[in-house]
Write a protein that binds this DNA or RNA. Sequence first.
DNA 1: CCCGTATATTACCCATGGGTAAGAAACAGT
DNA 2: ACTGTTTCTTACCCATGGGTAATATACGGG
Lengths: 232, 232
Amino acid sequence: MDGSPSSATPQSPWTPFESRRRARDEKREAVLRTAVQLFLEQGYHGTTLNDVAERLNITKPALYNYFRGKDEILYECWAIGHERVDDCIAEINSSDGSGVAKLRKLIVRYAEVMTTDYGKSLVRFDVRDLTDHNRKLVQASKRKIDRAFRAYIKDGIADGSIRPCDVKLSAFAIAGSLNWIGHWYQPGGALPAEEIASEFAIRLTEGLATKSSRKKAGKPPARVKRVRGGSR
Amino acid sequence: MDGSPSSATPQSPWTPFESRRRARDEKREAVLRTAVQLFLEQGYHGTTLNDVAERLNITKPALYNYFRGKDEILYECWAIGHERVDDCIAEINSSDGSGVAKLRKLIVRYAEVMTTDYGKSLVRFDVRDLTDHNRKLVQASKRKIDRAFRAYIKDGIADGSIRPCDVKLSAFAIAGSLNWIGHWYQPGGALPAEEIASEFAIRLTEGLATKSSRKKAGKPPARVKRVRGGSR
DNA sequence: CCCGTATATTACCCATGGGTAAGAAACAGT
DNA sequence: ACTGTTTCTTACCCATGGGTAATATACGGG
């Protein structure tokens, strides 16, 4: 409790114990990064743990130092993706603005997440590959995201920034467009992620907003057509 | 070749040979119906051929009378879905109307297909579970559908019924919303398929069309809100 | 220098499930 | 009734791949 003051004066937070834990966490993350890439490339069932290990220059059983099994790896990929979206929602919730503004902000953020590997996890993997317990967690998170979309739309209708509409259907339509990004987007493509995000934020709320949304500030004449990645 | 005129006077098209072929085709279809249901319920990899056979009151090897293997069953499900969409496209192509009208028609039809089991196949299954050959076919069909969406949008821009926009991005946005239907729609739900389809046709083209699309004929005052499936 | 812990390897287990071989049952035509 | 064909069953094969046991190596602390 107090006796030996000799060992480990915690003046530096980088006590060897800490550094070891850090190294461990980094390795864990490396496994996840590799796994999610492979799962996206080859599909979850098309990827073996040997594939994952091989790409990390280790062997399969080494993975079990960091994860209980394949499905836990899958779950963690998912969890990271959800965490990113949840962060966006938390931030937007604690901000203020009209319903349509919050909705647009969520669209932008969600679209950006969808262009990342962990974001794609949310729509490209199958919940049925998880254990019952983890599946419940994922489904709860999904509901949470859905509720956020609907809440902002409702807010918008209440504050007059969004025209009355079927909330559920609108949320599905928007979420669908965004989720689809996870299926077609690839980093090398003609369209950069930010451009997709901001364009979608306008496009997907165009029919809903009470007043036109054609960008107020920014590029003054800017014709939309310019977007197409030119000849290069 | 000609000699024996005695056997099988083909007065009725229901010569036993034909009837046997029909029975065979019906069984084949039954396998597909059962398989697609199970694949959607439990996922492709979560479904064994024993599961499929059991639900049909037969045994696994019997399935091999109708299909070369599991992946061929998957492919056929896909092919049926694609065929339905292709039919719509063919019909629309041979009709006339403005670009936006053709686009709306495609949205309606595509949305309806998405509410069926074979339609869901198009978005819920993974191309990587197919053989190289079949995967190529499926991907070709997917491109064809994508091209149709883009073509109608382009037509619309050309004939002035659609505002200039990024064709690719618009097609993705629309296709995304529609494809997502295959993930959330279930027959018992509050929203009937036709209503979803017609609502989406309006919603998804609202921001694109040059003139507002709020239903011309039909319910005169009809507030959209009514859609929500009442209390019950 | 020795020990305990964390980490990694080699070698193995084994349930799963797609697929096949051989033969029985159903059935049409003669 | 006999025969060939189609359809289906029983019994089996076996590659795959997730997971484990036993063991070796690296490393920090005393």
